[in-house]
Amino acid sequence: MSLELERHEAAHSLPANLLEAAEESLQKTYWSICGDTPQREDGKVLPRDQFAVSGMISFVGDIDWAMVLCLPRDMAVALSERFMGQAIDFDSTDMNDLAGELANIIAGDVKARLGERGIDVDLSLPTVVKGRGVEVFFSDEVQTVNLLFQAREGAFVMTLAAPTSPIGAGQSREED
């Protein structure tokens, strides 16, 4: 099976409402900051061996899942200019804050969108990792999908991770 096909099938095995909410939130957030809507480019992947900063948020509730927003160095610096009014150094703590805040804004919006779909979740505080070739590993019981987006500032990836048997809307956790 090709990598592209594997990714396509993984995307469709995650709850559709989760995927929709996450994509809508990312695009709205990006639009509000940059005036540009990043487009999904399925089938493309980012080079692994590069510097990047990632903001991670966990969600618990009707669906337990996690979101990782990975910004490659050049893209993150270009985005910082839009976000802050001036480019900031990739190695600075401000860049960590930017990745964390961006993940937090998107996550807050996702929570609201899931709420509109009858799914209640709470958020963790954002965690930020930065380095070269950094990958986030989830357990075998978790399925992940990497959504690559292309914006004027460059390409970046949003990874969604959810259990293989996620709890759906309208199901209480006691029903497990």
Binding site: I33, R82, F83, M84, G85, D94, D97, L98, E101
Partner: peptide, 14 residues
């Protein structure tokens, strides 16, 4: 408390 968010508010107001 976030410098990043203060800057985002400032940019948006401008």
């Amino acid at each position: 408390d976030s410098k990043v968010m203060r800057n985002l508010v400032k940019q948006t107001l401008k």
